[in-house]
Design a protein around this nucleic acid. Structure first.
Lengths: 158, 158
DNA sequence: TTTTAATATTAGGTATGCCTAAATATAATA
DNA sequence: TATTATATTTAGGCATACCTAATATTAAAA
């Protein structure tokens, strides 16, 4: 099952709204997505045709089990990317979220999985601190545009 | 000056073809972009309207100075992303290029610049080897799905 | 130079994804 | 219950970006 970026966004919106208030209506989606209701209706018709949602006229909108699966996988991609941008690259949360939202539709499976792997590599670092030291150094580097100057060198002094 | 992702791709194609053979024709772009000539023509008309190319009927296609500037900046984005995917995340060159091509249109300036900074941080690493050790470790990690087991510890032996 | 082949362009069609304005249905209030 | 407000849907329009088929132009070959 493969759908357009726009439809992926709609599906993700439904998933998120659903997780927050347990009933999803056209106006909720319109508000969340920043579009007008007729655009939502059109998208819903497509999603319905593809068997990803249940929606009867003037009623609530629900994800089918397949729709839920797909929405969840999209949402996971989003979160991975956001986390990468925010936690590792130190991009502010808003921008990180926006970037994630845009590129989540385009990145290959391989690259996404490698990013997951990268995050895991960092989070399971055996270093004493929570973050590996090189990452702290990078964050210092982005802030001051130079490396931490006289860092303790393990091997030889100075 | 802001143009659609598709037009950015066309502009970038022209830039790349131009750098390779110094004359750009409709068929070259069509081949490069994997589309049919009428699609190219349509795009060229838009790019012409925006003052980014010069193109007289049945003639060659040239970038204006503004078009060249823009194309170059798009191409740079592409290369940065490709380098990040390929060199740092070790994504194979083909996939790295494809991913770069897709997301180059969507990533924010901040994030892109942070990626540049990240690459620079790595490349100017004061470590003995060319690559910082943590990066070698990550590459090992992606290959064997575990960290290099008994790596030399600088401070206390094994 | 005339014919042929290659290339470029136009015309017209399709799909997506947005919109506004108008119509319809539902829910809330008097 | 009748009216009003809110929400939803339909109808129709616009821009982008692709396509095929037909036409026009240029370049190459006979």
């Amino acid at each position: 099952m493969t759908i357009s970026p726009a439809l992926e966004d709609y599906l993700e919106s439904i998933f998120i709204i659903n997780s927050r208030k347990n009933s999803v209506r056209v106006k909720d989606i319109a508000k969340f997505a920043g579009v007008k209701p007729p655009s939502v209706i059109e998208a819903l018709n497509h999603l319905q045709d593809k068997g990803l949602i249940d929606h009867e006229r003037y009623g609530y909108i629900e994800l089918t089990s397949e729709g839920n699966r797909l929405a969840q996988s999209i949402y996971e991609k989003h979160n991975i990317l956001k986390k990468f941008f925010n936690d590792i690259l130190c991009i502010d949360e808003k921008t990180a979220g926006e970037d994630a939202c845009k590129i989540e539709h385009y990145l290959s499976k391989e690259t996404l999985e490698r990013i997951v792997s990268f995050i895991r590599f960092i989070e399971t670092s055996p270093s004493a601190a929570q973050k590996p030291n090189w990452l702290n150094n990078f964050h210092y580097f982005t802030k001051h545009n130079k490396r931490p100057s006289s860092c303790p060198r393990p091997k030889k002094g100075k």
